[in-house]
Design a protein around this nucleic acid. Structure first.
Lengths: 149, 149
DNA sequence: TTGTAATAGTTGTTTTTGTAACTAACAAGC
DNA sequence: GCTTGTTAGTTACAAAAACAACTATTACAA
């Protein structure tokens, strides 16, 4: 029944999922408890916090997130007054999103948590290893060129 | 608006999620198209294929999967005649799961695909890097000791 | 025994996600 | 002007996941 040399726990997609899930838990607890946010929502929040005002499509392209996810995340974030939406005058299909003061505050808080948390997660690694790990992960993410519409 | 030294795309939970999602896509396509399976289902299948007959709880403990997920995965796998369930005589709460011939065949096929796919994913890395990557991922997965019930 | 707690697994209900179809606005060709 | 095609974003419906409550069985202690 067992196979010569295949170890499920070494299968990269499996391993990545496990690591992703495990490493997201603690952070999730925080954005959920403090702000009632979902994963899609903190991501949108972070994009706006980091890169400033942008449109849903731009966020989608950067985050590799489907537009319906973003639409719903923005809706909830707007309801809770974390972001504002404003129509573009030139092209009235597009909507510019930006953080409110409250959104900025939440972002500042979570951003700081994230940074600390990231340090904590990679505490066991030397700087070189840490960089190597992230580089490999970026490469893996890029391998499949985001076939999203 | 932008922050001195925080890069979202370098935030480990984010990065891991991106990599996990990206690297799962191709494999997902295969188990879905060929066998109509969900992620939970191929995982159960692999556990049985790899470790032989075992119970739902054992799978849950190993795979860090909630019991309801497993219950439903097993249900579907049993309906489609990939696994059989048999009650334990000594303790009639527990059920032993095992692959049918059909289940074995599916496992053999997918197992081989997985192996190839894993090689492909890590093709750009040397053996040492590959090992280091996996080791770090295992460590990250283990960091949070599976608070599941 | 019998009463309480624990364990294996299932079922029901609610959230979230995925997928596809849709509206509204623009663009370009004719 | 009118088609036809494209893009931004939303909405509706189906699939999947999360969470909580449940049944059945065993364990164990008074």
């Amino acid at each position: 029944m067992s196979d010569a040399d295949f170890d499920l726990t070494q299968f990269l997609p499996y391993l990545l999922n496990q690591a992703a899930e495990a490493s997201s838990l603690e952070f999730q607890k925080i954005y959920k408890d403090r702000y009632g946010m979902l994963r899609t929502e903190w991501r949108v929040l972070f994009h706006l916090g980091l890169y400033g005002r942008m449109t849903a499509s731009e966020i989608g392209a950067r985050a590799n997130m489907h537009k319906t996810k973003i639409s719903r995340a923005v809706q909830r974030l707007a309801e809770r007054r974390f972001v504002t939406r404003s129509r573009d005058d030139a092209d009235r299909r597009v909507e510019h999103l930006a953080l409110t003061a409250q959104g900025q505050a939440a972002y500042a808080d979570l951003h700081q948590v994230a940074q600390r948390y990231d340090d904590e997660l990679t505490a066991g690694l030397g700087p070189a290893e840490r960089a190597a790990l992230k580089k490999m992960l970026v490469a893996l993410s890029a391998k499949f060129p985001a076939g999203f519409t």
